[in-house]
Computed example of a mutant assay.
Amino acid sequence: MLTIGLIGGMSWESSAHYYRLANELVRDRLGGHHSARCLLYSVDFADIERLQSAGEWDEAGRVLADAARRVEAAGADLLLLCTNTMHKVADRVADAVRIPLLHIVDVTAATVRRHGLHTVGLLGTAFTMEQDFLRDRLAGHGLTVLVPGAEDRKMIHSVIYDELCLGVVSEASRTAYLRVIDRLIAAGAQGVILGCTEIELLITQDDTPVLLFPTTRLHVTAAVDQAITADQLVTTDQPVTADQLVTIDQPITTDQPVTA
């Protein structure tokens, strides 16, 4: 099994979800006492949140690029950035290392397309919903992306930072999110991307008949698939190379469905 490198801490609540999912998926795939071979580097989210609020994305990119180099040096074979919002600096992170970065948008978009959808709603932080770094990459996969209105975006962002990042899961917030999802569907969305790792702590497919695309679960599933299958493709004398993995520039093309 290849070693999955995780850059987390944004927030640690969602990073714990990444870790648990990776181990559960490996156990389910391989059985017995198998667990994920992984390395986790967790940043101090207070530092990242301050840089986000100040718009200091270059400095945030430097911090995460340094984390990526450390994870690579520790022995990771592929890399996950355990956050949607900080994929704004994904190119900077990918350029800092030789191992491939599995991009959360490419994984998600491939799943949306496999379900035959072309118009999706997007929930996430205000940065994710209002800036173009995720929306444009989704559009590059042929998807039309709808975002909530201004008041809904403000509420969604507040719940993420003031509740979910702090481990608070509120029934009132769940209801508010579901109302936003209903409005996105009424506006023409065929499904909804949960484009923030913490949102999956609040909303699951059991909460709504609308098809959801939980980016964390999809991201981890793709990483585990690659860690297991790529390891089976090479021997100890033939180290895995970037072109054998889905990278930041190579969206998934597998036909195997991934359930939400």
Score class of each variant (00 low, 15 high):
Ile48Met: 13
Ile48Asn: 05
Arg50Trp: 00
Arg50Asn: 05
Arg50His: 09
Leu51Asn: 15
Leu51Cys: 12
Leu51Trp: 09
Leu51Met: 14
Gln52Glu: 15
Gln52Val: 12
Gln52Pro: 01
Gln52Arg: 14
Ser53Gln: 13
Ser53Arg: 14
Ser53Asp: 09
Ala54Gly: 12
Gly55Ile: 13
Gly55Arg: 12
Glu56Gln: 09
Glu56Arg: 13
Trp57Ile: 08
Trp57Met: 08
Asp58Lys: 07
Asp58Leu: 07
Glu59Ser: 09
Glu59Gln: 14
Ala60Phe: 03
Ala60Val: 00
Gly61Arg: 02
Gly61Pro: 01
Arg62Thr: 09
Val63Ala: 08
Leu64Gln: 01
Leu64Ala: 04
Leu64Tyr: 03
Leu64Gly: 01
Ala65Met: 07
Ala65Ile: 12
Asp66Trp: 01
Asp66Gly: 10
Ala67Gln: 10
Ala67Gly: 10
Ala67Phe: 05
Ala68Arg: 05
Ala68Asn: 09
Arg69Leu: 07
Arg69Gln: 14
Arg70Asn: 13
Arg70Leu: 04
Val71Met: 04
Val71Ser: 04
Val71Ile: 15
Glu72Asn: 09
Glu72Ile: 11
Glu72Gly: 10
Glu72Met: 10
Ala73Ile: 01
Ala73Cys: 04
Ala74Ile: 00
Ala74Thr: 07
Gly75Phe: 11
Ala76His: 01
Ala76Cys: 06
Ala76Gly: 07
Ala76Arg: 02
Asp77Asn: 15
Asp77Leu: 07
Asp77Lys: 09
Leu78Met: 15
Leu78Thr: 08
Leu79Lys: 05
Leu79Val: 03
Leu80Phe: 06
Leu80Trp: 10
Leu81Cys: 04
Cys82His: 14
Cys82Asp: 11
Cys82Ala: 15
Cys82Lys: 13
Cys82Gln: 11
Cys82Val: 13
Thr83Met: 08
Asn84Leu: 11
Asn84Ser: 13
Asn84Trp: 08
Thr85Tyr: 09
Met86Phe: 14
Met86Glu: 05
His87Val: 02
Lys88Pro: 01
Val89Pro: 00
Ala90Thr: 09
Asp91Lys: 13
